[in-house]
Design a protein around this nucleic acid. Structure first.
Lengths: 126, 126
DNA sequence: CCGTATCCTAGGAGATACTG
DNA sequence: CAGTATCTCCTAGGATACGG
């Protein structure tokens, strides 16, 4: 049963709500840089995120068609996540936002591509 | 005294946290379309936002240099808010996000410019 | 290994009333 | 008019333990 998460009739609103969630852009950043990852590896890469929240974010991103879920019913099971084409497009737009933010901050050191929400080690945002 | 709002060392993260706040992008949209507005007019334009939250968002946007605050100590006082140059830039990037969202949703009706977060009448997102 | 099921709590948002 | 000052409520998220 899906939660109380209200949905908007506005596409932009819906997309922002999705990105707004905790860890979300950071997850996208990891997936972009480290390529497709298994659940556990992804969790370790993100850091202190709980399985509960990670699963939630992944489901929402998948529903939006931004990432794909590759399930292999082996023993033990193997589930990988990666960016879809939409995920790539989104990454590009977010890069624009990142550029802007960095420019405003007086930083022009493009260490990595794609927005890095929580720099490794930083807490999410509550 | 500023609140417990933790700040990030990552520019992108900080910007996202700001945009993420309730009503924020909608406020920007209103300011872009209706030009500079006085506090009361802005509040009425946005809809059901409380003065408390509106003030909070405006302060944060101002701190980020995205909007400006024009205070006239007349009687009664007159305070107007409008987009700064940064605000315009930001609007353009957000437009990109809006385009993407609309395209994915199969909508290509560009009714208005700038992302419209909560379509007039919709609740915020909390 | 990859998740779900529960419990719990912090703090963000609404409403209301009040000031310069 | 343009905000602050409180108070309360409620949900999103962390921690933990268990299931396929």
């Amino acid at each position: 049963m899906r939660k109380t998460r209200q949905q908007s009739s506005c596409p932009m609103d819906a997309l922002l709500r999705l990105l707004m969630g905790p860890w979300t852009t950071y997850i996208l950043w990891v997936l972009r840089n480290r390529g497709p990852l298994r659940f556990g590896a992804l969790q370790r890469a993100v850091g202190k995120i709980s399985a509960r929240v990670l699963t939630e974010r992944l489901r929402l991103l998948e529903e939006a068609g931004i990432i794909y879920r590759d399930y292999r019913p082996t023993v033990p099971p193997e589930v990988s996540y990666g960016l879809t084409e939409r995920g790539q497009e989104l990454g590009n737009v977010l890069d624009g936002l990142d550029q802007l933010a960095r420019r405003w901050a007086g930083i022009d050191a493009p260490t990595e591509t794609l927005p890095l929400r929580n720099p490794p080690g930083h807490p999410p945002h509550s």
